[in-house]
Amino acid sequence: MLQRIIFCTAVLLAIASVILLALFSPVPHRKNSTRHWLALSLYIQHPQVGGPVPIPVPPWAATGALIFHHTLTEGPENTSRVIGKAQGFIIPNEHFAHSAFNIIYFMFDTHKYSGSISIQSKNVGHKNKEELKVVGGTGSFAFARGHAVFAQTNGEKSNLDATYHIKLHLKFPNRSQIIPE
């Protein structure tokens, strides 16, 4: 009988605590649902090849696909601090212009940021300045959306040898804390 009384008391206390928690729990504030913005400026450097002379590559518009692996730096000089990598696979053929494969990935590995950003490159117009959509990210950039402005910084004739200045404007939905800028 004593066990039954103890059991019923425990059940009543559990039910009462659930009801009290539901009634007196703090309600989330509307301020936390605002979007937080982050602006980054970086550069894509053409890889410096050492040793034997590289084999010339035809212009990317004439080939079937552009596959690249470049470095991301803080400044425009190729001696600037490396902050990550830029990789991509783009098929410029008009049949694949809207392909889901046309994505550029930025991978960051710094003390401040660690993760990746995915940039959709469906509508590349082969201009010296492009504005593309940021469609997601991982790590420090989880759920990032926004846009990336690519601008060629040097007057190179070939887009393969060009250095690009990238301005990222990212927004993060429902972040509980503000991202430092």
Rank of each mutant, 00 (worst) to 15 (best):
Leu40Met: 08
Phe101Asp: 12
Leu170Ala: 03
Thr110Arg: 07
Ala162Asp: 00
Arg81Pro: 00
Trp37Asn: 15
Leu168Gln: 06
Glu74Trp: 00
Ala62Gln: 14
Arg145His: 06
His147Ser: 15
Val49Gly: 01
His98Gly: 14
Leu38Asp: 08
Leu20Thr: 10
Phe141Ser: 01
Leu170Ile: 06
Ala22Leu: 11
Val53His: 06
Leu66Gly: 01
His126Val: 15
Gly50Met: 08
Pro76Gln: 08
Trp37His: 12
Ile55Met: 13
Leu12Val: 13
Thr138Asn: 04
Tyr164Thr: 02
Met107Glu: 11
Ser99Ala: 12
Phe24Met: 08
Val57Ile: 13
Gln3Met: 10
Thr34Met: 10
Gly139Lys: 05
Glu181Gln: 12
Thr79Phe: 06
Gly75Arg: 07
Phe89Gly: 05
Leu21Lys: 07
Val135Asp: 03
Leu168Thr: 04
Tyr113Met: 02
Ile83Thr: 09
Pro59Gly: 05
Leu160Glu: 06
Lys167Val: 13
Ile117Asp: 01
Gly84Ile: 02
Glu74His: 02
Glu94Val: 12
Pro180Val: 07
Lys31Trp: 03
Phe101Ile: 11
Tyr105Ser: 13
His147Met: 12
Val53Met: 09
Val124Asp: 09
His29Ile: 04
Ile19Gly: 08
Thr79Ser: 15
Lys129Arg: 15
Val149Gly: 05
Leu2Ile: 14
His165Met: 10
Phe7Val: 14
Gly64Leu: 04
Glu181His: 10
Gln87Lys: 11
Ala162Tyr: 00
Glu130Leu: 08
Lys129Tyr: 04
His147Lys: 15
Leu13Gln: 12
Phe68Arg: 01
Asn78Met: 06
Phe108Ser: 03
Gln177Cys: 06
Glu181Met: 12
Asn93Glu: 15
Ile5Pro: 01
Leu23Val: 15
Met1Thr: 13
Gln120His: 04
Pro58His: 05
Ala97Tyr: 00
Ile19Arg: 04
Tyr43Arg: 01
Ser118Asn: 09
Trp60Tyr: 11
Val11Asp: 10
Ala97Lys: 08
Ile83Trp: 01
Phe141Leu: 08
Asn174Arg: 13
Val135Met: 06
Asn32Met: 09
Lys129Trp: 02
His36Lys: 15
Ile83Glu: 02
Pro54Leu: 10
Lys85Cys: 07
Trp37Asp: 13
Phe108Asp: 03
Phe172Met: 09
Glu77Pro: 00
Tyr105Asp: 07
Leu168Asp: 06
Glu156Val: 04
Pro28Gly: 09
His70Trp: 08
Gln48Trp: 03
Gln45His: 11
Lys127Gln: 14
Asn102Tyr: 04
Lys31Cys: 07
Ile91Ala: 04
Ala142Leu: 14
Gln152Cys: 09
Gln3Val: 08
Phe24Gly: 06
Val82Gln: 10
Thr110Tyr: 05
Gly139His: 03
Gly115Ile: 05
Glu77Leu: 06
Phe108Pro: 01
Asn159Gln: 13
Ala62Val: 13
Asp161Arg: 12
Thr73Arg: 05
Glu94Ser: 14
Ile103Thr: 13
Ala100Pro: 06
Asn159Met: 11
Asn32Arg: 13
Leu66Lys: 01
Asn159Arg: 06
Gly75Phe: 05
Glu74Met: 11
Ala65Cys: 10
Lys157Leu: 12
Leu2Arg: 11
Pro47Leu: 07
Val134Gly: 00
Gly51Arg: 02
